[in-house]
Design a protein around this nucleic acid. Structure first.
Lengths: 233, 233
DNA sequence: TGCATATTTCTTGTCGACAAATTAAATACA
DNA sequence: TGTATTTAATTTGTCGACAAGAAATATGCA
């Protein structure tokens, strides 16, 4: 049965846009809507059982975060992943890993660590059960929780955007190779969390940097592999 | 005569939102719409001679950049400047100054420097003629141009947001004290541009850091002065 | 048949109107 | 007179419809 349209009449006023936004956002980040997919407003309005107005509002927000591209008077589609400038992405990602982790060591409160540890446990479970999608999303959630413990919303919001973008890239990877993130990441997370708890800003920053560079080098490797596949096929 | 409504009929389809967005954005950043100002959709639709739909789209975009706050089903207003967490702002600003300047030294192309130098000339003029508003906006434009020469859109977009926020803070300052930015900033800009041109990443980063910290300490001083005024009055 | 132009179809952008939520005002009651 | 409840007014969120632009299709002509 069609869950989404069935909610048509029970929906609270103003909640529609958020629902559409959240669902589309997840579908884009999980590559259910791969880059380049056309976004049709009337189709979406039928699917969600609402008029085009709230749909458009959700699309404007998605466009604001760079998740979709809108050509005036023409089609709008899921934005491409910019493989050419990937190094820019990695630069920004590594820096934000470092900064947010360092700030977390400096500014966190006890209750922040509870959240972080819970997410780390979730991540460990995902790794244990080799659930790739869960790894990707809980990893992002974990690092975002660390960033939030750092209490600088400017960094947190950029980092959040970067982690989202990363979800798409990683998802692309796990789609082709049903590989698993090295167990090592779990240990690295533990070390980082310990450094944060000890309020050792310097160590936290260094570990975050190594962790980030570790991830980047992993992703770089698989990107090269992908490229080779493209060429040989 | 009323320029805005007079354009009603000659407007190109799709351009309305951008006009509204740009105008409101400038009015917010120049404090013509001070923090807390109520934003009324019907009033705006009358002012700009268009229906509420494009107005709302512009407002959604402004909300996405944190320039206005929207309470569901209730009023929407210009967002407050968060003086309590100002240190977060300064942290982010200094880091972005450093990173973008360093990247500019590394990645700039000759044509980038032409733009930068032109803006620096504009800034020098503004300082010379003691035009506070022009100083604020050309200073922001100059540093944004440097950031763009660094060619990392993740950093550039965060930096742009920070510089905008800074426009509001500085504007607030110049409103109370018709002071002028020290001439020293012009010289510091020259040094930074020279380091970029020489592709000396290390020097560029250090100069940018000093420049940024210089600005921050200036702003900090005046914030304290403001606070004292608040208390004594 | 091949190309340029005209027509149709489709999608987006804008509009005016209505309904829900909230606030302000008015009325009732102690 | 002060407070609680109802009613009215205001403002936001959503809708269906229409118009403009662009793409697809059809038509005219060499």
């Amino acid at each position: 049965m069609d869950n989404e349209t069935s909610l048509r009449n029970e929906r609270k006023r103003g909640s529609g846009v958020k629902v559409v936004y959240d669902i589309l956002r997840d579908e884009i980040l999980d590559l259910e809507l791969p880059p380049g997919s056309p976004i049709d407003e009337v189709q979406l309005s039928e699917r969600f059982g609402m008029s085009r107005t709230p749909i458009r509002e959700a699309l404007v927000r998605l466009a604001g975060e760079g998740l979709i591209d809108t050509l005036p008077n023409r089609s709008t589609m899921v934005s491409q992943i910019d493989f050419l400038n990937m190094h820019n992405y990695f630069d920004a990602l590594v820096l934000m890993y470092r900064v947010t982790t360092q700030l977390a060591a400096k500014n966190h409160r006890p209750e922040d660590l509870e959240v972080v540890r819970a997410l780390q446990a979730e991540f460990a479970d995902a790794v244990e059960s080799q659930d790739a999608l869960a790894m990707i999303s809980t990893n992002a959630a974990l690092h975002l929780a660390i960033a939030e413990a750092g209490r600088n919303s400017y960094f947190t919001s950029l980092f959040s955007r970067l982690l989202n973008e990363g979800r798409r890239i990683l998802r692309l990877y796990y789609q082709s190779y049903n590989d698993r993130l090295p167990r090592r990441f779990v240990e690295e997370h533990d070390e980082i969390i310990a450094a944060i708890a000890a309020r050792d800003t310097e160590l936290a920053e260094r570990l975050a940097r190594e962790h980030a560079e570790q991830i980047v080098s992993q992703v770089r490797k698989l990107l090269v592999r992908e490229e080779r596949l493209d060429i040989t096929l």
